[in-house]
Design a protein around this nucleic acid. Structure first.
Lengths: 110, 110
DNA sequence: ATACTTTGTTACGAAAAGTAACTAACTTAA
DNA sequence: TTAAGTTAGTTACTTTTCGTAACAAAGTAT
């Protein structure tokens, strides 16, 4: 029973952005187009399997674009679409909030 | 191997906000303090088990406050702390992005 | 005492995420 | 012409998280 005025667009948007790794991948791609292995080593502890899966999800949502350059070795570059770049203010907002409010384990005095 | 300059605060902030339901719960609490069953019926298809778990997570992170009023029946109100209210611009950003860019299933013409 | 409400908890099966090893295509080195 | 290396994944398997449903404590009303 949905008695709320919860907008289905907002609900879906939230679903997309709150999938694990999506935010960090988008953040990484804000630095410019880059290849699979660059993203993989930029993000701590994401595995190839998940990165591959998540990039496919984001491509399907029209947030990420995948370009194949048949060089040698083949170069595959991932970049943000307009829809993806439109997420930048949100990511920056999360950065700002995190700087201002998030305490790391080491800083939390119980 | 973390060769990036990825800020650990940002990483943790992202982890908190991107947990399933966190965003929608915070969005709901932006409307003001409210009780468990109100949140439960405002969000589509979240179960008591998950809502309980997520509210505890958010309370632990200092984002949500839990107040017990020993009335009859007992009233327990959940509200946002300052740290929680500071998330409002991010949630509004996601709302705006969703309005502008998110297409629902029904609208996607393959 | 019994039934009802609110705020949860417990138990269990399903789905998603994490880990590690493997594959395909193409290159350079021996 | 093998052999080993690189990039971009995939497959198989384990662990964690999620979802569903039934139950429980504390109090009121009947």
């Amino acid at each position: 029973m949905d008695t709320s005025s919860l907008c289905p667009r907002f609900e879906k948007g939230m679903q997309i952005l709150s999938k694990r790794w999506s935010g960090l991948i988008i953040h990484q791609l804000l630095a410019g187009p880059q290849r699979f292995c660059t993203i993989e080593s930029a993000l701590p502890s994401i595995s190839g399997r998940l990165l591959s899966e998540r990039l496919k999800d984001l491509e399907q949502e029209g947030i990420v674009k995948r370009d194949v350059y048949p060089e040698t070795p083949v170069r595959i570059e991932y970049s943000l679409t307009d829809k993806g770049r439109a997420i930048e203010p949100i990511i920056r907002g999360i950065e700002a909030w995190s700087q201002a409010w998030v305490k790391l384990e080491a800083e939390v005095q119980a």
